Measured scan of single mutants.
Amino acid sequence: ITGDVSAANKDAIRKQMDAAASKGDVETYRKLKAKLKGIR
Rank of each mutant, 00 (worst) to 15 (best):
I39P: 05
A34G: 04
N9F: 15
D18N: 08
E27W: 03
Y29G: 01
S22R: 13
I1P: 10
L32E: 02
Q16F: 05
A21R: 13
D11L: 08
L32K: 01
G38V: 07
A12P: 02
K10S: 08
L32T: 01
T2W: 13
T28R: 04
A20W: 01
K23I: 13
S6M: 13
G24H: 02
I13M: 03
A7K: 11
I39S: 06
E27V: 06
G24N: 03
G24T: 01
L36V: 01
K31S: 03
D25R: 00
K23A: 13
S6F: 12
D4M: 11
M17V: 01
I13L: 08
S6Y: 08
D11A: 10
V5W: 09
I13R: 00
G24R: 02
K33P: 00
S22N: 07
M17D: 01
K31N: 04
K10E: 15
K37A: 14
R30T: 07
V26L: 14
A34Q: 11
I1K: 09
D18S: 10
R40C: 15
A19V: 12
D25K: 00
G3M: 12
G24D: 02
A20G: 02
T2G: 12
K10N: 05
A7L: 12
D4V: 11
R30H: 06
R14Y: 09
A12M: 11
R40K: 09
V26P: 02
A20L: 01
G24K: 04
K35P: 03
D11K: 08
D11W: 04
D4P: 09
A8L: 12
I39L: 14
S6T: 11
D4E: 09
R40M: 15
L36H: 03
L32H: 01
G3I: 10
Q16T: 01
G3D: 10
V26N: 07
Q16P: 02
A20F: 00
G38L: 11
N9I: 15
A34L: 08
A7W: 13
G24E: 03
K31E: 08
Q16I: 03
K10Y: 15
S6V: 12
A8I: 10
D4N: 09
R30D: 07
A34N: 09
I1E: 10
Y29V: 06
A34Y: 03
L36D: 02
M17L: 04
K23S: 10
E27R: 07
N9W: 15
D18R: 14
K35E: 09
I13K: 02
S6K: 08
R40T: 14
D11N: 05
V5I: 13
T28A: 10
T2E: 11
Q16R: 04
S22L: 14
K33V: 09
A21D: 03
V5K: 11
A12D: 13
A34P: 01
L36W: 03
T2H: 12
L36A: 01
V26D: 06
Q16W: 08
A8M: 13
K35T: 09
A12V: 08
N9K: 13
T28V: 05
N9V: 15
K10I: 15
G24F: 04
N9Q: 11
L32V: 00
R14H: 06
A21I: 15
K35W: 12
K10P: 09
A8R: 07
K10M: 14
E27G: 01
T28D: 03
A19T: 06
S6L: 12
R40A: 13
K10W: 15
D4H: 13
A7D: 07
A19H: 07
V26S: 06
V26G: 05
A21G: 03
K10R: 14
A8S: 11
I13C: 00
V5F: 10
Y29Q: 02
A34F: 03
S22F: 06
M17T: 00
D4A: 11
K31W: 04
G3W: 06
G38N: 11
M17H: 02
I1V: 11
A7G: 08
D18P: 00
N9A: 13
Y29S: 01
T28K: 06
M17N: 02
E27D: 08
K37W: 03
K33Y: 11
L36Q: 02
I1L: 10
K35L: 15
R40D: 13
A19R: 06
